[in-house]
Design a protein around this nucleic acid. Sequence first.
DNA 1: GACGATAGTTCCATAATCCCGAACTGTCGA
DNA 2: TCGACAGTTCGGGATTATGGAACTATCGTC
Lengths: 111, 111
Amino acid sequence: MRPLPQPPRESLTLASVLHALGDPVRLELVRRAWANPELTCSVLADGLDVPMSTLSNHWRILREAGLISMTVDGRHRRIRPRADDLHDRFPGVLDPILRLGTAESLNTGLL
Amino acid sequence: MRPLPQPPRESLTLASVLHALGDPVRLELVRRAWANPELTCSVLADGLDVPMSTLSNHWRILREAGLISMTVDGRHRRIRPRADDLHDRFPGVLDPILRLGTAESLNTGLL
DNA sequence: GACGATAGTTCCATAATCCCGAACTGTCGA
DNA sequence: TCGACAGTTCGGGATTATGGAACTATCGTC
């Protein structure tokens, strides 16, 4: 159940967060992670036609940008959105993005 | 005064917009363009230690993502934020980002 | 008009980053 | 002990970013 290394709240930058969100696959992953916290990588990526090694990179980018935190749980990685940290550091930024991400990403043939 | 080609409002995607904003230089350029519309490339980039060929690429990315529109005005390019299009397409997304962009980008030794 | 200065773009080679198959690590269940 | 499963790491091919140098187009001046 130990957590993987992640940047502390105060060292998160807006540009990194936006860069992490600036990819349709990652945007969809973040949207799903926010909708249901505590799920694992593979469950959250279910249905996406993306190879696992690529997904692993996407999760790393999201973790290094401070959007999510990962904890090792047996052979799974449990994804937890860092909602508090982001809301504290960049108030008002994430909510409207995730509200919109939904409809759009489903219409782009991503799934 | 003719405008350079740009994507129509309805074909803008959230991921492209966030990708365009996910770079500290571009974030700063957008912030400045929003703060004072109708200025030219070089005036908006004043003080940034970035070569002009790189800036030209940044402006192109911002234009192709739909964040700004450029019109040729003599030997200048006049930058106009596409605030209406963005607000219509992605309501609530840009304002909080630009409100924050200010303080942060000035503290990262960018200038 | 010819000419230099100005504002940007384009070209191109280097550097950095992304993508994903294959091999690997670590854990669970039988 | 032995797979099977969840993810990561490695490696190299493809894509994208960077920035110097050359180029284009326009303005002001003589």
